[in-house]
Design a protein around this nucleic acid. Structure first.
Length: 244
DNA sequence: AAAACGATCAACCGCATTCGT
DNA sequence: TACGAATGCGGTTGATCGTTT
């Protein structure tokens, strides 16, 4: 099936967005919404393709974006969720209010992956030569929380209150797996988990309130994904508890 | 002071999935 | 049901900035 390109290549501006373009896009979305990304740039008078507008809005201009460094709680949550979900950045982002999939993906590749890799190889020189770079970011990645309170995060992770972000530490402690490896789940795990999940959901498990209002389209598929995320979260509890 | 190097992150690309007719 | 269009997602790239030498 031949796909039309997302935009005509001619006359479409690319590269970094200017402040003026940002203002135009924000003003247009505030006034008309973004029901049709493809038509939006034309309507707003922007020389961008709809895809580019959408990306700019979602990753940068959305009013509920949380800027600034990731807290250690957020980083631990990412590590934990990544251990369970793999590279499902949008699903992970849905669990971190105000954070975008792109941002999380970047943080993972720049900070967290290296952090896990270095902690899984304790005997090898742990500190890269350039670790002193960007003190603010590096410090927040390796040390305690910075300015951001973790309340919203904790709320979003409330379905896994017993989790205590333990996967990250257990991964570090065992040193058995780098996070890039697939999470191994055997059949007995599935049968146990699926059987358990029925009881859990009927006993007060909240589905759907954990996705932020920024979630692009609160749909049944999101609920479904939330089901699986919650399932994985609980499974994570089981797995990490079994290591103790 | 400046060149080289490495880290970061915004943005792009292409594929997959969903939606509408 | 089939098809095309629109949107979403994850991987990747490249410009920029900070650090080191």
């Amino acid at each position: 099936m031949g796909r039309a390109p997302c935009c005509e290549k001619t006359g479409i501006k690319r590269g970094p967005w200017t402040a003026e373009e940002d203002m135009t896009l924000v003003a247009h979305i505030e006034q008309h919404g973004h029901s049709n990304w493809r038509a939006l740039p034309k309507q707003a008078g922007l020389l961008r393709c709809g895809k580019s507008c959408r990306l700019r809005w979602i990753n940068y201009l959305r009013p509920d974006i949380k800027r600034g460094n990731f807290t250690s709680e957020e980083e631990d949550a990412i590590i934990q969720l990544h251990a369970m979900l793999g590279n499902r950045w949008s699903t992970i982002a849905a669990r971190l209010p105000g954070r975008t999939d792109n941002e999380i993906k970047n943080v993972w590749h720049t900070h967290l992956k290296k952090r896990l890799e270095s902690s899984s190889k304790p005997s090898i020189q742990a500190e890269p030569k350039r670790n002193a770079k960007k003190p603010a970011v590096a410090a927040s990645a390796l040390e305690g929380p910075t300015s951001e309170p973790a309340s919203s995060l904790e709320q979003s992770l409330s379905t896994s209150s017993a989790t205590d972000y333990s996967v990250a530490s257990s991964l570090e402690n065992t040193g058995s797996s780098s996070c890039s490896e697939e999470y191994q789940i055997d059949d007995s795990f599935w049968s146990e988990t699926l059987a358990m999940s029925v009881d859990s959901f009927s006993s007060g498990m909240e589905i759907g309130d954990t996705f932020g209002a920024d979630s692009a389209s609160p749909s049944s598929s999101n609920d479904e994904m939330d089901f699986w995320v919650t399932l994985f979260m609980q499974a994570g509890d089981i797995q990490s508890l079994s290591h103790i």
